[in-house]
Design a protein around this nucleic acid. Structure first.
Lengths: 214, 214, 214, 214
DNA sequence: ACGCACGGGACGACCCGTTCAT
DNA sequence: ATGAACGGGTCGTCCCGTGCGT
């Protein structure tokens, strides 16, 4: 029994360390020795928990996908319908991306050309957005002449684009890009008869480094 | 003089082959032997033209940046102003991305975590969009309450997002995503008094592979 | 603990094999695959024990320096003082050079132009000879007008010269060069009043190859 | 005809540059590109004059051997016989070693383990010393009980030892080591009845760098 | 004759992901 | 859960021809 908790702890440390290295160096350049050293365990221990590098990355992606799902499947807002939900969730997602290494690593692994078949959070996110916008369309929340599929593609592209840009060096994104994006898009997206979703308040100015609870 | 042309040819072949391998496997996984083999030359020839893998990638990025610049600096449209130019150029850019491997590789290298300091076309593109939207704002082409910087960020994010998504496996983007994106965004972006820019016609159905002039 | 002994054994085998290859081909020409093959292990095992070729050479030098130190720091002879000690130790050193590959390799590495900063046994040996001759001078064992520093330089030069010559192909040194050298030098070096140190007996004729206990 | 003189000049520059690089880095580490760059010509030019790296080294050795021969075959001193000649020539040799890169490189190449079959000046020098000491022995210039072969070995060993030591980093040899060596050895070497050879005056203190006419 | 841009293979060191034996 | 070992593979680069200019 005591062993189990210890094992779970090293497993967690491994996932966390792997996410950090993956996010920093990409999948191909991340070395297993570097990960195990950062987690404070030996390479043998790593291989005990995860049979291969791919399995480790897969686990990081799975955890990240779980986080996104938890974010998306929260209670629907009382008013505002699907579109309001979409606005709120994207807002939270960007905030979580900045705070959670594993989430960030999960998304980046999905776009890493070194990984041939990543099924990270990106795919799930894309399908969720598509489903939500189809739903909104069915509920008459979308403006005339707006294709839900096209709009979903645009939203997904912008989301992963924001994620990419924020992870690139040389790019500094302001903290409220999401709000600005919605302010731009909502007039053309939402049916005017229903009223526009309200934008969440932009995050307060950061002073100092935010805690990264992982 | 005769030698020069042969050298230039192999140099071009090298860049082209490198772009293909980089775009397929990412920077880290791309092997120099694979590139030189695909170009039909020896590794020694590769090393003669490019002293290192990094220099090769840098050259690919430089050529790609040049392509983007040529695309962006074409003659301004007679009517429609900056916003129309932006719409047209994004349209051409996405088309070029589908047709030109070097361009695609240049963009992907910029987002590759294996490359520590890529200065590919992404950076230049971002600054160009920002400058153009500032200009549009100064000319009164933007709607009230639209921040040119925020809008530029959104446009850039969406562009690289489209690029990323189209390069990911598992994602199938329809050919007219850009048009749909602009249809969504323009109502909120353009000043109503000036009239909306016209969207380019969606590309005809492709039959067979497009020419890839490299 | 049990593993340690096996690891120590391969480590020893690696050092031994490296010394052989270094002594034969010099540092630059010695290839790591050749060394690991001769040691009967894989290149990965080599890299596990020694992170780089330089570290391996450094270890060989360190072991060789240890051997020289053990040779020099034996008990002083009952009679004869420092000069007698010097004669005895040089004698043993040349014998050890013929018998111990690691020692030989250590000395040769010190003179190898491929190694930029070797701190092999040569340096320590030089300083020991200088110190010993200073001591002999203070004890009045040296003849008038003999500079201990100059004499030390000559002795060191002759020693490494013998080492070099014996390792060069095309040169065949007789086994008792050291005795002949001392017979030549001692009359001018030692104070006549103290009596000359006795020369060790020349080694018996070798029949066959000597064991090389490593 | 004009071409010839230019060719000879580049040939000289090549030999000189090769000697410098060989002396600094050893044979194996010396790269042909480095040599040709230092000589100010292209690698093709190098290959035109010397078909291979080995041929280049061989030429350096040949030139160096020629220098030693010119040094040794000067006019015999009026008085003093063979021993005096030996003393004088060693003195000049050490001076020349410090001044002439090609000479130094030639000697070092002879001891370089990377070169399998160097026939540099070392071999010729050894034989010359042996011959001279045999001659001195026949002329009764040597002390009783001194084996000319053993003495020659000692002298050669000391000479190359001095050469080695002076080329090692970390060793600082005083300028008059040779004089001190002879002061040490001559009492035991020369027949007392004939009078000791006179030592050459030690070189004056160097102020600034000596010219290296190469 | 002399020199050079260009290209060809080959090999070296380093290191990585993985598995056995303990 | 660990230390040790394995074999494959990558980048760099080195030494060397080959055909074009001068």
């Amino acid at each position: 029994m005591v062993k189990q908790v210890r094992a779970a702890r090293t497993r967690q440390a491994l996932i966390r360390a792997a996410a950090e290295v993956f996010a920093d160096d990409g999948y191909a350049l991340a070395s297993l020795p570097a990960i195990s050293k950062r987690a404070g365990v030996s390479t043998g221990a790593l291989h005990f928990h995860f049979p291969s590098k791919d399995a480790l990355a897969r686990e990081v992606e799975a955890v990240a996908t779980g986080s996104v799902q938890r974010l998306a499947q929260r209670e629907r807002p009382a008013a505002g319908g699907s579109l309001q939900l979409l606005v709120d969730v994207t807002h939270d997602l960007l905030a979580a991306l900045a705070a959670d290494v594993v989430l960030r690593a999960g998304f980046e692994l999905g776009g890493d050309p070194s990984r041939k078949d990543g099924s990270g959070p990106g795919l799930w996110w894309s399908e969720w957005v598509h489903a939500l916008l189809r739903e909104a369309h069915a509920a008459g929340e979308l403006a005339q002449d707006v294709s839900p599929e096209g709009a979903a593609s645009a939203v997904v592209a912008a989301t992963v684009g924001f994620g990419m840009l924020s992870s690139w060096r040389r790019f500094r994104l302001s903290a409220d890009v999401v709000e600005q994006f919605w302010a731009l898009v909502l007039p053309g997206l939402a049916a005017p008869s229903r009223g526009l979703p309200v934008l969440p308040a932009p995050p307060p100015e950061r002073t100092g480094l935010p805690a990264d609870p992982g």
